[in-house]
């Protein structure tokens, strides 16, 4: 079998390309540029949270961050409230968002490490606290982002959406760390067999702490960008990114059993998740049919990707 067929990211990209073509087929090829631009914009948010989730899932079975939606909401709410729409406060807002990300990441890891709670329980419980903090801090009032920030978030550079450029930069950073850095090797080793990794001298707890901090910071950045992009933070803005963050990781070819990461696949999967909804909307599928078809297509891709890997 040719080498390229064994690439786990291939299936996500093939699926994205197929849905792109199918969506355009109905409009007889019109609007390709518009659709690609929209996919890049909205795929970027899914990709940023997906890359974070991937780091945690790579740690092995049971590792997942379910507090991503609440962290996005809290970071966006506090950052936009701090900026209050005033000019020259963009750095302040970004700082608040990053601090929120670090804070929720540390809180999550403290619950997991100190109290020995399973990550699913710890992050789910913590997310109720973060969501309540977001409600309490601003009672759902939608504060507009500063003009310059809104223009940046919705703007483009060289015909590529700025949010996609930010997402790409973050992804390339993670990709380099995973492929070329020591920490990346440690992460994979810890995910494949934590006991063996510990015996081999890998600081497993430090690796785990960094992964949980990273996913929170990525979620906080995504929330900050999304709120700037859509004209304000809303209390339910993170809701769809819980399933999305896990789906893009799995469709993208990262092993759910841990110990194996794949950054390029995340982007293919993020495009696919956006395009499949666009495709079904374009064909006028009802909400029920859309949910069923989305589920069936996802299962199909995961089966295709994993069976190739096993045979390879």
């Amino acid at each position: 079998m040719p080498n390229v067929l064994r690439r786990p990211w291939l299936w996500a990209w093939l699926a994205a390309a197929a849905t792109f073509a199918a969506t355009l087929a109905l409009g007889s090829g019109r609007g390709a540029g518009g659709l690609a631009y929209a996919a890049l914009s909205f795929g970027a948010f899914a990709a940023i949270v997906g890359v974070g989730q991937m780091l945690v899932i790579t740690l092995g079975p049971g590792n997942v961050d379910l507090s991503i939606p609440a962290t996005m909401t809290l970071s966006a709410t506090l950052a936009l409230k701090a900026m209050d729409g005033a000019p020259d406060t963009v750095l302040l807002g970004l700082g608040v968002a990053l601090l929120v990300g670090l804070g929720t990441g540390m809180a999550n890891f403290a619950l997991i490490f100190l109290l020995r709670l399973p990550p699913i329980i710890a992050t789910l419980a913590a997310s109720l606290v973060y969501q309540s903090l977001a409600i309490w801090s601003n009672r759902g009032l939608r504060v507009k982002p500063p003009q310059a920030l809104a223009e940046f978030a919705t703007g483009r550079t060289l015909e590529i959406p700025n949010v996609a450029l930010v997402g790409l930069a973050l992804s390339i950073g993670v990709w380099i760390v995973l492929e070329r850095g020591v920490w990346g090797r440690w992460l994979l080793a810890a995910g494949q067999n934590p006991r063996a990794a510990r015996l081999a001298g890998v600081p497993v707890e430090r690796v785990r702490a960094t992964a949980y901090l990273s996913v929170s910071v990525f979620a906080a950045v995504a929330g900050f960008l999304l709120a700037s992009f859509s004209g304000g933070a809303a209390l339910n803005m993170g809701a769809e990114y819980l399933l999305m963050s896990i789906a893009v990781v799995i469709i993208g070819g990262t092993s759910i059993a841990g110990g194996f990461s794949n950054v390029p696949g995340i982007w293919g999967a993020a495009f696919f998740m956006f395009l499949v909804v666009s495709m079904l909307n374009t064909y006028g599928a009802g909400a029920g049919a859309r949910s069923v078809l989305t589920g069936v297509i996802i299962i199909g891709i995961v089966i295709a990707a994993s069976s190739r890997r096993n045979h390879a």
Binding site: L24, G27, G31, G34, L35, A38, G231, M237, A239, G284
Partner: peptide
């Protein structure tokens, strides 16, 4: 038609994906 779930972000995303066609 798209489902916007009564949320600006969701509506924005749905419409952006459907508009080209």
């Amino acid at each position: 038609s798209v489902h916007g779930d009564w949320a600006q972000e969701v509506a924005q995303k749905g419409v952006a994906g459907l508009l080209p066609s």
